[in-house]
């Protein structure tokens, strides 16, 4: 039987990979995917805590996180599409005219 520590370490590892993806990659879609990876790492720790505490609250919070992730993906991808129409690239370094 895997203990709570197993799940928390796994969640931390996956979250770290997601953070590394946000900072290392120069592609807007891969950056959005890395955000999804981080959200899933957090979901895993919610479910693990809920399971080992014997409560259903962890699972319910995961449903809300999934809903927010869907909203975030829809708006983020709409932004990516409208940015791509202007500059024809997905490299975030190309969007320097957004600087004040």
């Amino acid at each position: 039987m895997a203990s709570l520590n197993h799940y928390l370490i796994l969640s931390g590892v996956i979250f770290t990979i997601g953070v590394a993806g946000v900072f290392l990659r120069r592609n807007l879609i891969t950056i959005l995917l890395s955000i999804e990876v981080m959200l899933n790492a957090v979901n895993l720790s919610f479910i693990a805590f809920g399971h080992f505490q014997g409560s259903a609250d962890g699972q319910i919070i995961v449903f809300f996180v999934i809903t927010v992730a869907a909203a975030e993906a829809a708006v983020g991808l709409a932004l990516v599409i409208s940015l791509f129409r202007h500059v024809e690239t997905l490299n975030p370094d190309a969007f320097r005219q957004l600087r004040g």
Binding site: N40, N43, I47, A73
Partner: peptide, 27 residues
Amino acid sequence: GLYVLLDAPFVAVTQIIVYAGAIMVLF
């Protein structure tokens, strides 16, 4: 699969249908 091991099969099914099935298809 880990969610199923953690006795949360409904979340696991939601993860597959909604996350992998809908959000990733949008991507």
